[in-house]
Write a protein that binds this DNA or RNA. Structure first.
Length: 964
RNA sequence: GGGUGAUUAGCUCAGUGGUAGAGCGCUUCGUUCACAUCGAAGAUGUCGGGAGUUCGAAUCUCUCAUCACCCA
């Protein structure tokens, strides 16, 4: 049965993947040679809630290429797959599922234990989506080892057992005991939607249209001072008596929690009032709070009024100022971002705050964060509603800074209006919840990252771990050198619960189990810390955790440290840096020797793909349309290190066509009996026909190129080298060259050519397999009987010894002759179907020999019917100048002499331009003296060849002129 | 504000000091037995601007411009 004209990816992919899996082709160590080195890649675990997007497709294609390449080379290979439990995302998904049915209890109504049961149910039912999608892509992971960052957690159902929970808890306890983990009240990013702390990496700072309000903070006791403003040259431009200090803010609702007003120590404008008290212009008049005017380096004198209100509990910069200057921290909001309703009446709380401000009460003796300074009228309001009311109240009282109304004079317009600047401000948003993040003072657990960062920095500095592209080292260094304490607690339920218990007195007991904690606590009643650990804390242990640590498993022994990590640039901080720190802190070894950081896949216009823009290309849809191989090849060919990919379907179609081209070359071979009686023994052919010798050498070249490219993680170079070889060499030339031999050759020539072509096509399949696994495996199986599937075929090692320089030279001569003839014919409008005679006036021995050996294929491809010697070229002849010869197509009557003249002049013009450059260099003594010898020699040879060719063209032109 | 990168054919991009390239698109021609998801031929470049180093610069240095991303 003849082969189909195209590869039916949709029909074959599933079948082939199943066959690989069924045969255990992907299991750790499959196809390993005895005593082989190991090669291990850890998949960056996708979220359990995730589904395959282009970034995954790209990332996993690159991993699969490396893995398949090493497996075929006989390494003991493991590609370790798994998923991340994704705390917030998963909890969000399950809560949303529950909410779909109104009769369901909410998470809180359900309670922690019940809810977690629901999460596990969801995980078992829907958590495998991305795994199946990765399989469609062709990812050759060892799925039997699929890992999960929550495996083995209490309450995990059957089938979810494993060591990960133990590993996480053990690391926490060890780090706690070493003092590397501590609990403390710190300002953290708080997500009011999910009511949990999040890390600063989970915050997106987005520029939004905002406002800057300007308010007057009256000086206490009606004091006044002379406010003087000067220009750059020191000339006074404004001088007035003031009884207030002007403050600009983008968040007026936080004024209620101000602890001070700060100015820069060098700011002369406010020097007279530093140390005095001023009044916060909001809240019941009888309880106006007084706060001190202090100096600090933080305020920028040139920004706004130069004076900054300090709200230590609700702003990161202010927090620093407050700590430096012992300014009390007043918390204004609850976990939902509403103004607090707890605590004592405002009058009492304000009195306490006033006592602190006036120095009658020590701030350190009480917990100021418990003091609720929200006046009754604002209590319970949403933070944004509170803002509106605060602004209205201050303005009504006349304490807003006023400016001239541009519309003054118009009907109903006042002369002055409050000074409100419209300006873009950077606002923090939760990357999951999309709500405005609130800096909040809360009790959280932290890793003392600074204490463990050293080894992670050293490992990259001294090259034990290499980051590619190299410039991303800087990103890594910059982040680690400025590392902040890592907040690892989350106020969620889905995750590893923190293994710390408290007794009635609040004393902490950190232990792996409740029994151990209980033993430590004696008979006291313990309650466990309700918080869970940041997901990245557990995924930070991914390399050792997936291999079975803390057990000393054979896999851990064998595959750790792993080899390469392939990941997106966006999680260098999230994950790469943390894995480096954690592995070095826990087992004192680097987790991998190479980190390949890749860029983003964008749409064809260069926009980031996003659901809201609607420009998302779904890899699964693309696989349906073009086949997985085409997607993979496209991503690979575009994977220039460190550059974003702009993906267009047109490009994918092009590489789908490339697959078809390969398919049809194989089909040609099959139709010509190339694979009949084909019994490869693993050796390379040693044919005698020049054409065959030539293609064997070209194959050896591309094999070396591919290996070199992959070894250097230059995936695009590997893909492009293969594309150029398979299409440009094998299909365009070799298949055509083979036709006369296969069809009209002697039995020996036929046999040799069949054997060579079978070998060449096999090499194409082998070399392409890591990038295009499906079509190559299908052809491998279709073309011949095989001992092993292609996925386990031996990767070749042959090299330059297969290159025959004479065959190379000869075939390149033949190719250029054919190209010259074709070009001349096309330009002179010789009908493509016309068989024409050819003459030569000179042809050296090499040329003569080349012609003789390749006559049949030259005639066929250039559509020539004879070659004869001539004394001179006849009238009306197209001249073909090649190395070592002048040939011509006598076409009197068919061609136009004038057109031939134009054609020759054009070629000559091009040649002369090139010659000008070459000879200019050669005439320059400095070039000859200082350039490397081989460069000079090369230039000289090139100049000679070009001169020779130009002479031939000139001679031809002269003849044309005589005739005319 | 700090950092990083980009600027090469109409488009998307390779190209680490020695003859400016690929794919797509475009034009013309072509159904001869692998392939029209094809073949043949062709056109298109002040390599962002300027200066410098060098025998020689798309490539190294400086500078300017524009754009992008990351961090504050």
């Amino acid at each position: 049965m003849p082969m189909e004209k195209t590869f039916d990816a949709a029909a074959a992919e599933q079948r082939l993947y199943d066959a690989w899996e069924k045969a255990g082709c992907f299991t750790a160590g499959a196809n390993a040679k005895p005593g082989a080195d190991t090669f291990c890649i850890m998949i960056p675990p996708p979220n359990v809630t995730g589904s395959l997007h282009m970034g995954h497709a790209f990332n996993n294609t690159l991993q699969d290429i490396l893995v398949r390449w090493h497996r075929m080379r006989g390494f003991d290979t493991l590609w370790q797959p798994g998923q991340d439990h994704a705390g917030i995302a998963t909890q969000m998904v399950v809560e949303r599922e529950l909410a779909k049915d109104k009769s369901n209890p909410t998470r809180r109504e359900m309670g922690r234990e019940k809810f977690l049961e629901k999460v596990w149910e969801w995980k078992q039912h829907s958590g495998g989506t991305i795994i199946n999608q990765l399989k469609r892509l062709g990812a050759s992971c060892d799925w039997s080892r699929n890992a999960f960052t929550m495996s083995g957690a209490p309450g995990a159902p059957e089938g979810e057992d494993g060591n990960f929970h133990d590993a996480v808890i053990r690391v926490f306890v060890e780090m706690y005991n070493k003092g590397l983990i501590y609990r403390g009240k710190r300002l953290v990013n708080w997500d009011p939607h999910f009511e949990t702390a999040i890390s600063d990496l989970e915050v997106e700072n987005i520029e939004v249209a905002g406002h800057m309000w300007h308010f007057k903070y009256p000086l206490a006791g009606g004091e006044t001072y002379t406010y003087v403003e000067k220009d750059e040259d020191g000339n006074v431009i404004l001088e007035e008596e003031r009884d207030y200090i002007s403050i600009a803010t983008t968040r007026p609702e936080t004024m209620l929690g101000d602890g001070a007003v700060a100015v820069h120590p060098s700011d002369e404008r406010y020097a007279p009032i530093v140390g005095k008290l001023c009044e916060i212009p909001v809240g019941p008049k009888e309880h106006r709070r007084l706060i001190p005017i202090i100096t600090d380096e933080y305020p920028d004198p040139d920004f706004g009024s130069g004076a900054v209100k300090i709200t230590g509990a609700h702003d990161f910069n202010d927090y620093g100022v407050a700590l430096r200057n012992r300014i009390p921290l007043y918390v204004l909001m609850d976990t939902k971002g509403h103004m607090r309703t707890d605590g004592k009446p405002y009058a009492e709380e304000a009195a306490l705050a006033r006592a602190i401000a006036e120095g009658h009460q020590s701030a350190s003796s009480i917990d100021t964060t418990a003091v609720n300074l929200v006046p009754e009228k604002y209590r319970g309001l949403d933070r944004f509603e509170a803002r509106k009311q605060v602004i209205a109240d201050i303005t009504a009282e006349g304490l807003a800074v006023m400016v001239e109304n541009p519309k003054a004079g118009e009907e109903g317009e006042p002369d002055l209006i409050p000074f409100v600047e419209n300006k873009p401000i950077m606002q923090p948003f939760g990357d999951r919840s999309k709500v405005v993040i609130e800096p909040m003072l809360t009790d959280q657990w932290f890793v003392d990252a600074e204490a463990i960062v050293g080894p992670a920095l050293d490992a990259v500095r001294d090259g034990r771990t290499q980051i590619l592209p190299e410039r991303d080292r800087k990103v890594y260094f910059h982040w680690l050198e400025n590392i902040e304490p890592w907040c690892i607690s989350r106020q969620l339920w889905w995750g590893h619960q923190i293994p710390v218990w408290y007794d009635e007195d609040g004393k902490e007991y950190c232990a792996a189990t409740e029994e151990e904690a209980q033993a430590m606590a004696g008979g006291k009643t313990l309650t466990r810390d309700p918080d869970v650990l940041d997901t990245w804390f557990s995924s930070g242990l991914w390399p050792i955790g997936t291999l079975g640590w803390p057990e000393k498993t054979p896999e851990l022994e064998k595959y750790f440290p792993t080899d390469v990590l392939i990941t997106g640039f966006d999680i260098i901080f999230f994950w790469v840096a943390r894995m480096m720190m954690m592995q070095l802190a826990v087992v004192d070894q680097i987790p991998f020797h190479t980190v390949y950081v890749h860029a983003l896949v964008r749409d064809e216009k260069g926009k980031k793909m996003s659901k809201s823009l609607g420009n998302v290309l779904d890899p699964l849809e693309l696989i349906d349309e073009f086949g997985a191989d085409a997607i993979r090849f496209t991503l690979t060919a575009m994977a220039a290190m460190g550059r974003d990919l702009k993906l267009s379907t047109q490009r994918i179609a092009g590489y789908r066509n490339f697959g078809t081209k390969l398919w049809n070359a194989a089909r040609f071979a099959e139709m010509n009996g190339v694979f009949e009686n084909y019994n490869p023994d693993g050796s390379s052919p040693n044919p005698s026909e020049t054409v065959n010798r030539w293609i064997v050498g070209e194959t050896a070249r591309v094999r070396a190129e591919v290996d070199e490219a992959l070894a250097a993680y230059r995936f695009n170079d590997a893909a492009n080298a293969l594309y150029a070889f398979v299409w440009g060499k094998v299909c365009d030339w070799y298949v055509e060259f083979s036709k006369p031999l296969l069809m009209d050759g002697t039995p020996e020539q036929q046999a040799e050519t069949r054997a060579t072509m079978a070998w060449v096509i096999d090499q194409c399949l082998i070399l392409l397999h890591p990038i295009m696994p499906y079509i190559t495996e299908e052809l491998w199986g279709t073309l011949g009987k095989r001992e092993k599937m292609l996925v386990h075929a031996d990767w070749p090692t042959y090299g330059a010894e297969l290159i025959d320089a004479d065959a190379d030279r000869e075939m390149n001569w033949v190719i250029s002759l054919i190209e010259e003839v074709r070009s001349a014919r096309a330009q002179m409008r010789v009908p493509a179907s016309a068989q024409v005679p050819m003459l030569y006036t000179e042809l050296d021995a090499d040329g003569r020999a080349a012609w003789d050996r390749n006559e049949a294929l030259i005639k066929r491809l250039a559509r020539i019917d004879s070659l004869d010697a001539a004394e001179t070229m006849p009238k009306g002849c197209i001249t073909i100048a090649v190395e070592g010869g002048t040939l011509g197509l006598p076409l009197e009557g068919i061609i136009d002499v004038a057109a031939e003249k134009v054609r020759l002049e054009k070629s000559l013009g091009k040649l002369e331009k090139e010659l000008g450059g070459l000879q200019g260099r050669l005439k320059n003594p400095k070039f000859v003296d200082s350039a490397p010898e081989d460069v000079v020699e090369e230039t000289r040879e090139l100049a000679e060849a070009k001169t020779e060719e130009a002479d031939k063209l000139r001679a031809a032109l002269a003849r044309l002129a005589e005739l005319a």
